[in-house]
Computed example of a mutant assay.
Amino acid sequence: MSTGIRVASLEDIPEGEGIAVAKDVTGTADDIALLRDYDGSVWALDDTCTHETASLADGWVEGGYVECPLHSSKFCLKSGEVQGLPATKSTCPHRVEIRDGEVYLFPNEAP
């Protein structure tokens, strides 16, 4: 069983915002956005919006969703399911664990 990849400290991700982790660190096809909701939870989705080339890490996080900064497409933090146009394709979620204030990512594992 994998122990995950330590990718950030919890304090590195302000509530309501996100940070991107480079694909050369994660070994994935896309960078991964670590997104922190106002309840303190942290989620991980592929970083590139499925509608246009915009970083979801630069989007707005609230109420279990991230809104793309370019055209306001909305994605569920837990499932990656698209929740608002103009995007019509969901994005890929990844499992995250918080241990002692550190964020561990499990690329390509479902949450």
Rank of each mutant, 00 (worst) to 15 (best):
D12K: 13
I13W: 06
I13K: 06
G16W: 03
E17H: 14
E17I: 02
G18V: 03
G18M: 00
I19F: 03
A20C: 07
A22C: 13
K23C: 15
D24R: 09
V25W: 01
G27R: 06
G27D: 03
G27S: 08
G27Y: 00
T28K: 02
T28W: 05
A29P: 08
A29C: 05
A29M: 12
A29Q: 15
D31N: 12
I32G: 05
I32R: 03
A33V: 06
A33K: 07
L35M: 07
R36H: 07
D37C: 06
D39V: 02
G40F: 04
S41N: 14
A44D: 08
A44R: 00
D46E: 02
D47V: 04
D47S: 10
T48Q: 13
C49H: 11
T50N: 13
H51P: 11
H51W: 08
T53V: 15
T53K: 14
A54Q: 02
S55E: 06
S55Q: 09
A57W: 03
D58L: 14
G59T: 06
W60A: 06
G64A: 01
G64S: 00
Y65K: 12
E67S: 10
P69K: 09
P69H: 05
H71Y: 09
H71S: 07
H71T: 10
S73K: 10
S73Y: 03
